[in-house]
Design a protein around this nucleic acid. Structure first.
Length: 571
RNA sequence: UGACCGAUUGUGUAACGGCAGCACAGCAGAUUUUGGUUCUGUCAGUCUAGGUUCGAAUCCUAGUCGGUCAACCA
């Protein structure tokens, strides 16, 4: 590091992986190359925990002038599908990263791995075991007790060769035999107790089809794939820490001095409260139709967050804020919400929409008149410009913005009180109308013609206690709005004895069909975020059509009023 | 009761033997034509016990607590 960089103000401290990399670089390891990889198994959709890993791996390469491969860890044809491959590529790209060259597949290396396997057998370092899974498991012992050796452990090399060849040729049934590495049955590390290298699986593979009926296990494929690709830093999550000695043992068997030597580094996976983060559980939610799919906006999947309205920038910033370390962590969802609000606050066009409309008639406004009033597109953006919104005698305001008997700290509309309509006029509530059930149906108000926003008059500068949003009734457009809350009502749904699904939040989806939005929203693109003033950030759902607007609420605005109400601190 | 890993405010994360900092959350206030944004202030932390040292969150020892490992999954 040069003096210039180290003197740069507010230099970010390095996380422990960056420190390792900088040490490696300083020692001149691997010719100064930094090459990482993101290695998902294509057996499910990516979630925000993967986003952390993606940002880490690609970010490391960007920072140190290196490259990153996308590699599908597809050594188990039973669970892996092309659908997942495609969604994973889409998600990585959407997050803003581009991998080096073509996507790689562990299955691309099956031939090479097979060759290495033959070499290991020849060297007497692997043997065919004919025992059942149960017997092997039994012999493996337990972490506190050493294992015992298989009766087949010292089978002659030639016999191993022949058997393995016949295994490959499909002469045996699934489970009939496996190939094991001959390491150390008494190792305190379970993974070193003669781990299985190959098993028989008469299943077609999504890439290699029927070519193979034997497939290498993770441990005897992952490090070797890293080696083949010239990966320098193989970053994975903590649960693989105990695999590292095996990773290194296998690597040693195939390594040629002078080559790049990959190194496995483990970090703590992301946990988020009020959700679950395992592919198995997410799949269960999908299969049991408790959510509408992998991209249900309540899911912590990347596709779900995308559909919900999260931006790639917000997710990258989030990944940045949570940091990288080795201790177990549970991130508060409020940090994720902060990340999206922070991003959308800068970018989102301000618009007005009313979720639960309450009709307002301005008794002193001319019948049939329409005014077009200029309003800021985004006060946070100097170059955001203005647009005109229609105003007329009949309006809708939010039901929540009127109270017949308001508490002391309620600043909005009530009988006899005044509020400003955003970018329009100050109005005063004169009377109201109710139906037989006592529901308020219409508010009759007067407006102050001199109070027009931006007119510069004394009346326009009057301070009233609140400004509320509204839409012009004859101009408004109908919309369906989907409000989302956390999927689970328990902070740690999978941290109990009870099934995690019992903690699902019954109110995680609320569909509003009565909404009225300003006419400009009738023709907007998907993948664009809006701030519905005072309500939150929204975007068009993928199910929306030109005649049928459907908006997802990405996140509410910070809401100190609701907080006051909940505390009972409004009088 | 084995091996490995970890432990810093409510939640995350820095400090690499020399003033425990930052972000989120919380609280209080200012500004505000969004009860938003912005700004200011504030609360709150080194798991325990020993040791090394002029000096320990940091190094050593022991303990405590938490996590991981016993799929022909990854």
């Amino acid at each position: 590091m040069t003096d210039k960089t180290s003197n740069a103000k507010a230099e970010r401290s390095l996380n422990f992986i960056e420190q390792i990399i900088e040490n490696d670089l300083q020692e001149g390891k691997n010719k100064g190359i930094v090459y990482t990889r993101f290695p998902p198994e294509p057996n499910g959709y990516l979630h925000i925990g993967h986003a952390k890993s993606i940002c880490l791996n690609f970010g490391l390469a960007q920072k140190y002038n290196g490259k990153t491969n996308l590699r599908f860890d597809d050594t188990n044809p039973e669970k892996e599908e092309t659908e997942y491959v495609n969604s994973i590529m889409e998600d990585v790209r959407w997050l803003g990263f581009e991998w080096e060259g073509e996507p790689r597949y562990a299955s691309d290396y099956f031939d090479q791995i097979y060759e290495w396997t033959v070499k290991l057998i020849r060297d007497g370092k692997a043997y065919i075991d004919e025992q059942t899974a149960e017997q092997i498991s039994e012999q493996k012992g337990v972490p506190t007790r050493p294992g015992t050796e298989s009766p087949y452990r010292n089978r002659p090399i030639e016999e191993n060769m022949q058997l393995f060849d016949r295994m490959k040729n499909g002469e045996f049934k699934e489970g009939e035999m496996v190939l094991r590495a001959k390491i150390h049955m008494a190792s305190p590390n379970m993974h070193m107790r003669d781990p299985i290298m190959y098993r028989i699986l008469h299943k077609p593979h999504h890439r290699t089809g029927d070519k193979w009926c034997i497939y290498p296990m993770y441990d005897w494929a992952h490090g070797e794939s890293d080696y083949i690709e010239g990966i320098t830093h193989s970053v994975c999550t903590l649960e693989f820490e105990v695999h590292r000695p095996l990773y290194e043992w296998f690597l040693e068997q195939v390594y040629t001095p002078g080559d790049i030597k990959p190194r496995q580094i483990e970090f703590a996976r992301l946990n988020l409260n009020y959700t679950v983060m395992s592919k198995r559980k997410l799949l269960e939610l999908v299969n049991t139709k408790l959510v509408s799919g992998w991209d249900d906006p309540r899911m912590p999947t990347i596709s779900g967050l995308r559909r919900r309205g999260y931006t790639p920038e917000s997710l990258r910033n989030f990944a940045d804020m949570i940091g990288i370390a080795k201790r177990d962590n549970v991130i508060d969802v409020s940090l994720l919400e902060f990340a999206i609000r922070e991003d959308l606050n800068k970018k989102a066009l301000r618009v007005m929409g009313v979720l639960n409309p309450l009709k307002v008639v301005l008794t002193n406004y001319p019948d049939g008149k329409t005014e077009y009033l200029p309003t800021e597109n985004n006060p946070e953006d100097e170059n955001g410009g203005l647009r005109d919104i229609p105003f007329s005698k009949e309006l809708y305001i939010e039901q929540d913005d009127f109270m017949e008997n308001p508490p002391k700290k309620y600043f909005r509309l009530s009988p006899g009180a005044e509020v400003r309509l955003k970018s329009a006029y100050i109005i005063k509530c004169e009377s109201l109308e109710k139906d037989e059930q006592g529901n308020i149906t219409t508010l009759y108000c007067t407006y102050d013609p001199d109070s027009k926003s931006g007119s510069g008059t004394e009346a326009s500068k009057r301070k009233v206690k609140a400004t509320i949003h509204w839409v012009s009734a004859p101009h408004a457009v109908d919309a369906e709005i989907r409000l989302y809350d956390r999927l689970f009502s328990d902070a740690e749904p999978d941290g109990h004895d009870a099934d995690f699904k019992t903690f699902l939040n019954p109110d995680s989806l609320q569909i509003i069909t009565t909404a009225k939005v300003e006419p400009a929203l009738a023709n907007v693109d998907k993948n664009v975020s809006f701030q519905f003033m005072r309500l939150g950030y929204f975007c068009l759902d993928k199910e929306a059509t030109p005649g049928n607007l459907v908006f997802n609420r990405t996140v509410t605005l910070k809401d100190t009023w609701t907080k006051l109400v909940e505390k009972g601190d409004v009088n």
